[in-house]
């Protein structure tokens, strides 16, 4: 009932029709990939253009789940081109300003959802539209990862800024990119994929393990 009321309120606002469909198109329960990078952290890879963020429950009702005091479907984020639009479904503040209508997200903005959950939205690289979501409050993603990558066209992992994921001890960058609809990666160093020497580009395959001179990571499917 509450959700219906929220919907009615939201649809009453001009220019919100498109984003409301997110609820209907919710990818709740969709299987995500997690990139576990040794010595760096774990990152949830979101390939879709729109994601619903909500409370982690035994029956998931959102794409990205947070173990915190927020609605099961709290906010939605839709990517349009290189922009990200936030639609709140419960009390939400962007940079401490309350909002109840779609808002364009900017680099390094803090999103407060409900009473205590706080997220930071960042789009660190001008060369890539991929954005990153981090929990800045003392809450956790489910599954427990260090951040969420909203993959657009490419994503940079490297020792220097601006990278979506900074890997301080790497000597060179690793680039994730889309090639003919398939996510691949490439790096300057010699790479072993599942223990075998391979040549670039390397397709990103669930269950794979890749390692180079100074890096190693695995792709796991979150079930």
């Amino acid at each position: 009932m509450v959700r219906n009321a929220e919907l009615a309120h939201t649809t009453a606002m001009p220019g919100v029709k498109q984003i409301v469909n997110l609820l209907d198109d919710s990818t709740a329960g969709r299987r995500h990939q997690i990139m576990w990078i040794d010595g760096v952290g774990g990152f949830l890879l979101c390939h879709q253009d729109d994601v619903m963020i909500g409370q982690a429950t035994s029956v998931p009702t959102a794409d990205l789940l947070i173990m915190g005091d927020l609605s099961r479907q709290a906010i939605a984020i839709r990517r349009t081109g290189s922009d990200y639009l936030l639609q709140p479904y419960q009390e939400t503040r962007i940079e401490d300003v309350k909002t109840n209508r779609p808002q364009l997200l900017r680099h390094c903005q803090t999103i407060a959802v409900g009473t205590s959950v706080r997220l930071r939205f960042s789009k660190p690289s001008p060369l890539s539209s991929t954005a990153r979501l981090d929990l800045v409050s003392h809450h956790r993603w489910k599954p427990a990862v260090d951040g969420v990558l909203l993959l657009a066209d490419s994503c940079i992992f490297g020792p220097r800024s601006p990278s979506q994921v900074q890997c301080p001890h790497w000597q060179s960058e690793l680039l994730l990119y889309k090639l003919n609809g398939q996510w691949c990666f490439r790096t300057a160093s010699e790479t072993l994929v599942d223990g075998r020497v391979a040549k670039s580009p390397f397709p990103l395959v669930p269950g794979m393990r890749a390692s180079g001179v100074d890096f190693s990571f695995s792709i796991e499917v979150n079930s």
């Binding site: 576990w36 040794d38 010595g39 001890h169 269950g207 393990r209 390692s211 001179v213 100074d214 190693s216 695995s218 792709i219 796991e220």
Partner: peptide
């Protein structure tokens, strides 16, 4: 360089 014996899973 960090080389781990075991991988994910």
């Amino acid at each position: 360089t960090m080389k781990f014996t075991y991988g994910t899973g």
